[in-house]
C-alpha cells in the first residue's frame, strides 16, 4: 500500500538489511558451519532409548531449558535490531512474548538435517523419536515438518535474519500500545527483506511462501501453549518449581 508505506531510500534499506544480518550472526547460538560439521553425529539407539525412558516431566523440563536458552539469544537479536529499543518497553515485551518462540522455530531450520530428519538437540542430532517421552507426538511431528519445509526454501543466512526480524516485528500482536511505530518498523523490515531477496535473485514466489510460514509459526506456537497447559494441569508443581523462570514468564 503506497499510502501507508514509509518512504525509504535504497541506502536505508541496505543499511537495515546489514544491521539485521549482523545482529543475526552475532546472536546465533551456533554457527552454521559448526552445525554442518556436527550433522553426522546422530544419537545412537541406546541414547535414544535413554531419552525415551526419561519420565515425562524430566523430558519436559529439559526441553523447557533448551527453549529458554535459545530464546535468550533471540532477545539479544531483537535488542540489536535498529529501532527495536526505541519502541516503548511494553511493546518490546509484547513482541518478544509473542514472537521469540516463533524465531526459535525459524532458526531451527539452520540446525535441521533434512536427509535424516534430525535436529541438533542436547549435543547431537535427534530424530522425532528422541522426544517421545514428552507425550506430544503431534506437536513434535508438526515442528519437524515445519523445519523440513523451511529447509526446502534454501534460505541464506541474510534471508533467515531478515525473515526472523519480520516475524518478530509483527504489528498485529495483541496489547501493542504504539502499533503504528511497530507497523512502520515491520514495513521497513519487509522492504529490506524484499531487497535482499531481489539481490539474491530469488524467484518471485518466495515472499508468498514466507508469508505462509508466518501462519504456520502461529499455529505451532498455539499448539505449544496447548500442550504446555495440558502438561501443567497434570504436573503443576514441576512447572512451578523446576521450569526456567523466563519460560514461565513467557508462556505461563
Amino acid at each position: 500500500n503506497g499510502e501507508t508505506s514509509p518512504t525509504v531510500s535504497m541506502a536505508e534499506l541496505e543499511h537495515l538489511a546489514q544491521n539485521i544480518s549482523k545482529s543475526h550472526v552475532e546472536t546465533c547460538q551456533y554457527l552454521r558451519e559448526e552445525l554442518q560439521q556436527l550433522s553426522w553425529q546422530a544419537f545412537l539407539q541406546d541414547e535414544v532409548d535413554g531419552y525415551q525412558s526419561k519420565p515425562r516431566e524430566v523430558m519436559w523440563q529439559l526441553c523447557a531449558i533448551k527453549i529458554t536458552e535459545a530464546i535468550q539469544y533471540v532477545v539479544e537479536f531483537a535488542k540489536r535490531i535498529d529501532g527495536f529499543m526505541e519502541l516503548c518497553q511494553n511493546d518490546q515485551i509484547v513482541l518478544l512474548k509473542a514472537g521469540s518462540l516463533e524465531v526459535v522455530f525459524v532458526r531451527m531450520c539452520r540446525a535441521f538435517d533434512t536427509q535424516n530428519n534430525t535436529v541438533y538437540f542436547d549435543g547431537k542430532y535427534a530424530g522425532p523419536d528422541v522426544f517421545k517421552a514428552l507425550g506430544c507426538d503431534d506437536l513434535i511431528t508438526s515442528v519437524f515438518d515445519f523445519a523440513k519445509s523451511m529447509c526446502s526454501l534454501h534460505l541464506s543466512e541474510d534471508e533467515i535474519a531478515l525473515f526472523s526480524a519480520f516475524v518478530l516485528l509483527s504489528a498485529d500482536r495483541t496489547w501493542l500500545q504504539e502499533k503504528l511505530q511497530v507497523e512502520k518498523l515491520q514495513q521497513k523490515t519487509q522492504l529490506a527483506l524484499q531487497h535482499v531477496l531481489q539481490k539474491n535473485q530469488r524467484e518471485d514466489g518466495i515472499l508468498s511462501k514466507l508469508r505462509c510460514k508466518v501462519s504456520a509459526l502461529r499455529s505451532l506456537c498455539a499448539r505449544h501453549s496447548e500442550n504446555l497447559s495440558a502438561f501443567r494441569a497434570v504436573y503443576p508443581d514441576i512447572v512451578r518449581s523446576h521450569f526456567p523462570p523466563l519460560y514461565k514468564e513467557l508462556f505461563g
Partner: peptide, 17 residues
Amino acid sequence: LKEKHKILHQLLQNSTS
C-alpha cells in the same frame, strides 16, 4: 506487563555484550 515480565524486562535493560 513490565511487572509480570521482570526477567524479560531485565534482559532488555542489560547492555548488549
